[in-house]
Design a binder for these strands. Structure first.
Lengths: 231, 231
DNA sequence: CTCTCCTATAATTTCGAAAATATTTGTAAT
DNA sequence: ATTACAAATATTTTCGAAATTATAGGAGAG
């Protein structure tokens, strides 16, 4: 329990927990989310639960059918491709704007977060893996790259698509963690991306992002065909 | 009360009503949404209300501050421009894909919905204005244009941005209804758009959409500066 | 044996009172 | 007069029982 969680409402807390538990795969895609179960699992009443679930419906992580309750949004090959297609568009748009609008402070910020993230990645190569700090730093780094875009709507939509995509990425996270070759590739790719961004080379930055994400889709597709998580 | 609203849950009904009442400006931007008031206005208890409001928070039409309740999302010049920037991008992407993927049935659909919509617009010129059918037909027409894009995520995001934008459009709707010159322009623009779409001329269709929307932004900007709805 | 309809059970959804928190009002001290 | 503090009021948030609706199981007719 962190210090800052004092005055949060129960609805907000259970929203965070649910989102995390869905993204991380604690609940299976498509799984029914029964009120009674959730109530005892999260130790809350009906109201905050329904509130959280309702928000996740709009957010796209949860489905609901009237009078038949809630369920975890399913994953599928088709959706994976659709999701990444839109996501690449949004992310690239944000990146372009960010490179265009970012000031000196932003450049410093990019450098700093990449420095931290890189350090974590290098430790991962030597088997010192800390998944939670990996996630945090990756998230921070990727957000810093685009946060100077000055478009609240782009950022909001990106957030949504990002959370969706994280569910798919979880399928093949283990291959990331273990494979040193993949990790080294990954570090190099990001290194190139950062230089392109800092030198305001929009075209290169966009192309690198596109390539990197398309290979992500490939990795996930392979993992999905092996696993039986989604046909 | 329409026929098909029998087995809807109260939360769903109040969600629709709230969305409509916010978009149409029945509630002022930024206005506080008090539970007691809403409860008596919509004749429901706390649970379905909070559920609907929660979904509208994720959707972007409602804001909420913990322990301080809900309020209507505010409008502003900055957001207008941000919104339309993103919206144009998404809509164009969807339009391109739709032109690319649409089959013969889709072409027929486009022709049919435009025929109906045009008829309604022509009646509007002769002062036979029916705002509700105007809205319905406009919505149907614009959706038909892009529905062949085969991307659920694009459609979902478009829906969200569309509803947001409708709030701004409401500010200057009266000038649309009354001004015959604007209406004639409008019909002509759409006529051109439909021909471009049907002849699969993606470039022209995109350009026409862009121009038409940029002039929309201008109209709204002017109206906002006159009205005092948002500074 | 299969299908339909009815009953029993289980789940979702809703209500309104109770708890928790914010806001306002009033009082006293500086 | 102004600030600080405290009581009173108003509002939001939560709980769990009650109402509504779906689902499963079983009896009877064809």
């Amino acid at each position: 329990m962190t210090i800052e969680q004092k005055k949060q409402t129960k609805a907000a807390k259970v929203l965070d927990s649910l989102r995390h538990d869905i993204i991380s795969g604690h609940f299976q895609p498509g799984q029914k989310l029964q009120m009674e179960d959730l109530k005892s699992q999260y130790n809350v009443g009906y109201s905050p639960l329904r509130e959280a679930l309702s928000r996740l419906v709009s957010y796209g992580l949860v489905c609901m059918k009237e009078q038949c309750g809630f369920s975890v949004a399913p994953l599928s090959m088709e959706e994976l491709h659709d999701l990444y297609m839109v996501r690449i568009h949004i992310e690239i748009q944000a990146l372009e704007l960010s490179i265009q609008n970012g000031d000196d402070d932003w450049e410093a910020d990019v450098t700093a977060t990449w420095f931290k993230y890189k350090k974590c990645l290098n430790q991962a190569i030597n088997n010192h893996i800390d998944p939670s700090s990996w996630d945090k730093l990756q998230k921070e780094f990727r957000f810093t790259l685009i946060k100077a875009c000055q478009s609240p709507w782009l950022l909001k939509i990106r957030d949504m698509l990002n959370d969706q995509a994280l569910r798919y990425r979880f399928i093949c996270l283990n291959s990331y963690y273990r494979n040193k070759k993949v990790l080294n590739e990954f570090i190099k790719e990001n290194e190139n991306l950062v230089s392109a961004v800092l030198s305001r080379n929009t075209k290169t930055a966009v192309k690198l992002t596109q390539i990197s994400w398309e290979s992500s889709v490939k990795l996930i597709t392979d993992a999905m065909q092996k696993n039986v998580i989604a046909k």
